[in-house]
Design a protein around this nucleic acid. Structure first.
Lengths: 256, 256
DNA sequence: AACAGCGCTATTGTCATACAATATAACCGA
DNA sequence: TCGGTTATATTGTATGACAATAGCGCTGTT
């Protein structure tokens, strides 16, 4: 086997070759976001395949968030929406049976970073939105489901305030899967007073631009989270459960 | 508009409906990884569409890493390979023009966490592999390209040693895009002695299970990285450049 | 009974073609 | 100039066909 003359050549199906060809032109900048792709017929002719084949290639690109319906019904190149990454990561996490502990470990360093950066970069608009979120949180301390939702939103808002898109990409799916677990904690050990206090403290730190305090309270908040899980008898080593909300609407996400 | 009686109903194309239908059955566990999908003809009949439509749906799922060629040429359900997530994130980062600073910020907290966890969980095998990587690194301190590659590999190995799959998912694309920048630094301010020293120190800490030292040196390593960029006149606010290596082979990745 | 070789079959990959649905553009009449 | 109408471009979907081939089972040999 070692002195073989020919390496096994990869017979990729035509739809994959077509997909790769277009994909590469997008990633190297030849086809910039916004550009309309040629009609399927033209593409088929240019690539030397037929329309069904081109369409299969398009479905791959569409699913990767690299193209989407644009003007004149045509496919347009686009920078992948955040929700594409989120969905991919979400599915990987669930299907690999990744545990809450693994998510928690990562989030427990990312979120304090988010808080710290947010204190330095937060806008008036986001201060206001977090204030609204806090009010909402205060109103539903006893409702596990609503509280979990508000919790996810709070952390999302803080992350947005951090003004770091890499952070946004990396943390969103983790947060969406991790925080809902807090709902169970609430159900078992009572209302989320500690959660609310932590959120409040973080909020005030952000408002006053106090990066260290924001960081430290977020950190404390995470230690608390873990402690809450333990008190509630939750096993952090359980596999993460799919988030039904996020499950339904891939590619209907918010702003890039 | 506010007192509208009907909400705009979404006329999704059949191929999307078919895709969603199958996708949901995968995510809710009805179709477990390993399961063979029915032949395209059967699927078409069951879903009440035709084969080309089914095939378009499959391409979407395939691109999401949820199915792949299995036994008997049929499509089999599969947990998404890590490279699917990596590719998605990679493309999003590049096409959104995310900056090195944003990557660096996130990595500068994730990697120290990886180092810390690695010290607690590293296996003999990975100790060995990192040792080999160090030797390789020592041999190419003056070759920017090879050094950058070895650097990416070093951090990947440390992350693997951390035994946290969420961390692995979140950091891989960031590392693959960030560390190659060090190549440029080397080119401009000379060989990577400091890099090598940091890697060595981290390695020894891992070997001896010294989590704090591993953490701290990784941290220092990242501060150094930034400083190196500044000395080399690199603007961290530049948009990240696509990593040509990773660009070519989606879905040819390594182990899940 | 084990096994090598061979044809068969199930299944995918690809093509050609056709037609319906519809958003957009072009046009036209007031 | 503008509102409405027709035309056009383009996608969405169906039908049917055929080539390629991986894997199965059969058969005959040892």
């Amino acid at each position: 086997m070692s002195d073989a003359v020919f390496e096994t050549l990869d017979r990729l199906p035509a739809y994959r070759v077509a997909e790769q060809t277009i994909r590469r032109k997008i990633l190297d900048g030849t086809l910039a976001p916004g550009t309309l792709l040629p009609p399927e017929n033209d593409l088929a002719e240019q690539l030397g395949v037929t329309r069904p084949t081109v369409r299969e290639a398009m479905r791959g690109l569409e699913s990767a968030g690299l193209i989407e319906r644009g003007a004149r019904r045509r496919m347009a190149v686009t920078a992948p929406n955040r929700s594409v990454v989120t969905t991919a990561m979400h599915e990987a996490i669930v299907l690999h049976g990744i545990s809450y502990r693994e998510l928690w470990e990562v989030q427990s360093v990312i979120e304090p970073l988010a808080a710290r950066s947010a204190a330095a970069n937060i806008t008036a608009d986001l201060v206001e939105r977090i204030r609204v979120n806090l009010d909402k949180t205060a109103d539903c301390l006893d409702d596990p489901i609503a509280l979990a939702e508000a919790d996810v939103e709070f952390h999302d808002l803080v992350a947005q305030a951090a003004d770091n898109r890499a952070l946004l990409l990396a943390r969103e799916p983790l947060g969406a899967l991790l925080f809902p677990a807090y709902g169970t904690v609430i159900q078992r050990i009572g209302p989320g007073r500690r959660l609310f206090e932590a959120h409040s403290r973080i909020f005030h730190a952000l408002e006053t631009g106090d990066a260290d305090t924001a960081h430290d309270w977020m950190n404390k908040h995470f230690v608390d989270f873990k402690r809450g899980c333990e008190l509630a008898g939750l096993d952090l080593d359980d596999a993460v459960a799919a988030n039904q909300n996020a499950l339904d609407n891939p590619r209907n996400g918010d702003t890039p």
